[in-house]
Amino acid sequence: MSGATLAAPARLPWLPLAIGVLVLLAWDSAVRFAHVPQVLLPSPGSVASSLWQAAPVLARHALATGGAACGAFLVAVAAGMVLAAVMMLSPLLNRLLYPNLLLFQLLPKVALGPLFVVWLGIGLPSLFAFAVFVSVFPVAVGTLAGLRAADPNQLRMCRAAGGNAWQAFWHVRLPTSMPYVFAGAKVAATMAFTGATVGEFISANAGLGYMVMQAQARSDTPLIFAALAVLCLLGAALYGAVGLAETAARRRWGTRR
């Protein structure tokens, strides 16, 4: 397993931080000296002041988006794992579902957003369903790959001990799949925010996506950037939480050999 790193001391990522600061400086000087209009590209300073002024509103909308995305993420992880388990345990369902799953995986799922509005109307249900829809596939496909990656020798050992298919699933396949589940969950975490935000573009009256649309209508570009910054923060927070859960799981099911 590639995660088998020796406990590295926690260090601040200096290099990426330095590059971030450099980009900010370049951005600022570009706006300052090339006289780029605010509507096209606001300076970092005006984004910051917009962040500060709109903080209460941003917080309210962030709560809506974060809540929807995190909820959708949890539902997608649960549903994706169940879907994969069902396909693993039932060859018939696997044959019925798997090709469709792959097909959906290939589809630009975001394009289906308007359909959800047609079916479920404007509001939370359609945006939540849409966010679940776009994030369930990486979990299902990843988990299934993990369940199938189980070591044939370990499966044989389990069978020799008298284990049935269900026990092989529970005691061998599921622990094997953990790193794959987390790989899928990390993709799902970003997909859930994509889904929630796009959902808010087309079907909401709250949330950061909705706010971006409002700001755009008012040509308030600094506010758009401020909302994007909050969105980044939220996405990073969920991603980080998944990472922490993975560390905990690795301690429990660490698969180093």
């Binding site: 020798n153 370990q154 001990a161």
Partner: peptide, 28 residues
């Protein structure tokens, strides 16, 4: 009432030695 040993130990890497030894009991 049959115990089996394979060419490689095929221990489950996420279980402790004790839990691996107890695995047949878990299954039964």
């Amino acid at each position: 009432q049959t115990g089996v040993m394979f060419q490689d130990a095929t221990l489950l890497p996420w279980l402790s030695v004790l839990d691996n030894v107890l695995f047949p009991a878990t299954i039964r």
